[in-house]
Measured scan of single mutants.
Amino acid sequence: TETYETTDETEARKIAEELKRRGLTFRIERHGTTIRIESD
């Protein structure tokens, strides 16, 4: 499991693209301005 936290929408998108490219599944949670991406 890898966890990323960012407040930057663009960075979050880049992380999501990278995880997809590596064939990982992940979920995105939003907590206020923080975007949390957690891979399975």
Rank of each mutant, 00 (worst) to 15 (best):
E38P: 00
H31C: 12
S39R: 07
E2Y: 15
E9H: 06
S39N: 04
R36V: 08
S39E: 04
E38A: 08
E11G: 02
T3H: 09
D8R: 03
S39V: 15
R30A: 05
E18G: 09
G32D: 04
T3G: 04
E17Y: 12
E18W: 15
L24A: 05
T33F: 11
T10L: 12
R21T: 06
I15H: 05
T1E: 07
T34V: 13
F26V: 13
I35V: 04
F26P: 13
T6I: 06
T10Q: 13
I35T: 02
L24K: 07
E5V: 13
D40S: 13
G32W: 02
E18I: 09
E5C: 14
I37K: 01
R13Q: 12
T33D: 13
E17D: 10
E2Q: 11
E2A: 10
G23H: 04
R21M: 07
T10A: 14
R13Y: 12
D40R: 12
K14V: 08
I37V: 04
E9N: 04
G23M: 03
G23V: 01
A16R: 05
I35G: 00
R21K: 09
R22G: 02
E11I: 12
E11Y: 09
H31W: 11
T25C: 15
T33S: 12
L24V: 09
S39K: 06
F26H: 04
T3S: 10
R27E: 05
D40K: 11
T3Q: 07
D40L: 14
R36T: 07
E29Y: 15
H31G: 03
S39A: 15
I28G: 02
R13N: 09
A16L: 13
R27D: 04
T25K: 13
T25L: 09
K14P: 00
L19V: 01
K20F: 09
E17Q: 11
T25R: 14
R27L: 07
T6Y: 03
I37T: 01
E38Q: 13
K14N: 09
T33G: 11
E18L: 09
E5Q: 07
E9M: 08
D8C: 09
L24S: 03
T25E: 08
I28S: 03
T1L: 11
R36C: 06
F26K: 03
E9G: 04
E29H: 12
E29L: 14
